[in-house]
Amino acid sequence: MAEVVASRLRSWIQDTFFVEGFSDSDSFLKNRLIDSTGMMELIAFIETGFGFRAEDAELVPDNLDSIDNLVRYIARKQGGLRACAG
């Protein structure tokens, strides 16, 4: 499941920002792959694509600034949603 999410994220990031050759752990910001306006697009993508609303306090590099961070964040959010539904 994590691999599917990572693959989907990587594909969208490559298509949207025309960047390649980055690892799952590479920082988008430090490596200048995505800037802050790009981050807004990324947030909109994950909210629409993975079905949750990100809280303002969650919009931090630890959750968003690499594919690994995003995969963990999405898993937590989706796990939280499933727990609520259950």
């Binding site: 910001l29 200048r32 995505i34 800037d35 802050s36 981050m39 947030i43 303002d56 919009l59 931090v60 590099p61 968003l64 600034d65």
Partner: peptide, 8 residues
């Protein structure tokens, strides 16, 4: 709203 750390 987001963290300022999300700017490059």
């Amino acid at each position: 709203l987001m963290s300022q750390q999300l700017s490059s």
